[in-house]
Design a protein around this nucleic acid. Structure first.
Lengths: 220, 220
DNA sequence: GTCTATATATTGATAGAC
DNA sequence: GTCTATCAATATATAGAC
């Protein structure tokens, strides 16, 4: 693996484990057994590393979105989508734990983040419309924007919320499924009678996944 | 005013404006025209200042809660409550912009935060029960915890979300009313037919407040 | 591409006089 | 309570040899 890529991977790992603020360029270099000078050969500074990490995140997100087929059931579609989002947020959680601060320090990163945001909002919004058209959700036109916004806030800050709730937050699969179940909770009041059975079946499926993941974690 | 209190006020102001991370003890001292030595006479370090700020926040919150009378209409009650929460979050927004990081650095602060959290969750939960008992909201027992959690996430991270959305986030009254309107959006699907008129009237009231605040801000 | 060595700046914090 | 002076530690970043 190229050194540049090694630096990115090590940085993600260290940032997630110990917090971006507590990790210096020297820590990253030491962790990899390379010199600080070498690190600075590949990156101008720490912000540059963070920008590179975000670029990976954005590529990852976009490529996974494109792999989502439009042909399937809109409920499965939004669930798969949310699953991807939670997975990625978890993989780059240092970034989301610190979102306003990291963005305000780095205008070009903020610009890129805003672009991706706009894409995501469009996607979520169109998925809700699909769910409405398929008579799965009963959403009024004027409720659409608020619901989209609430879905965004819940996914974006779910892990941050968990970290404030527990003394030693373990970000495992169980935590991500719990987040997905909050998405179910948000959508639940809008579900039509027609689709209720299908919806509750899907919810129970994730409830079981959450419980399994939680048990695995307990025994580990 | 005592120097200790001056330090706290100046710190809140500087932290909110420029971010806690970018403000050092020297900045605070310089801003007040006192020496760093003097600052360190009053506080052991920066964390100590942040803890003191949070103590003020907690006192503020608790005293304002106690002033809420239990006798009034439960809908007004939860709205007043949410208003207090948004006001306080705004006043200490540097803290909420950075919640996971600041808490992880300071275990005793985290402990205190968790205690306050538990109180708030109890309060919100009991308010939802009141709304259910008054036949204003139609919430099932098993939906209560999820809805409480979603209300917490939305209030806690509303300003953080706004800061990630706009290039130059101005945290004004309009922003807080927009947050309150998201609370309406969360509760709306649960409102009973009986209470719908009262609910929409209240929502329109805040919609107007938001628009007025937004106009004032535009002309300023 | 990588290392060693080092420069520069900043930070958090203290000692001791007034 | 407050100031001046100052320190030690840490962080970012670069120069120049290999």
């Amino acid at each position: 693996m190229k050194t540049r890529e090694k630096i990115i991977l090590a940085s993600i790992e260290l940032f997630n484990e110990q917090g971006e603020r507590n990790i210096t360029t020297n820590h990253i270099a030491a962790h990899l057994g390379i010199s600080p000078g070498n690190l600075y050969y590949h990156f101008r500074n720490k912000e540059d590393i963070i920008s590179a990490i975000y670029a990976e995140y954005a590529d990852d997100l976009i490529s996974q979105f494109q792999r989502l087929s439009d042909t399937e059931n809109p409920l499965d579609s939004i669930l798969k989508y949310m699953d991807i989002v939670f997975q990625l947020i978890s993989k780059f959680r240092f970034f989301y734990s610190n979102l306003p601060v990291l963005l305000s320090k780095n205008p070009s990163l903020k610009k890129r983040y805003s672009e991706i945001q706009r894409e995501i909002i469009k996607k979520v919004s169109s998925m809700l419309v699909s769910l409405k058209d398929a008579d799965i959700l009963n959403i009024k036109e004027e409720e659409l924007d608020d619901l989209t916004c609430l879905l965004r806030i819940t996914t974006t800050f779910w892990l941050s919320y968990l970290q404030t709730q527990h003394d030693e937050p373990k970000i495992d699969d169980s935590a991500l499924y719990q987040g997905l179940l909050k998405i179910f909770a948000l959508l639940s009041p809008y579900v039509t009678d027609n689709a209720r059975e299908e919806f509750e079946k899907a919810r129970n499926h994730y409830l079981q996944l959450e419980q399994q993941a939680s048990e695995v974690e307990m025994s580990a």
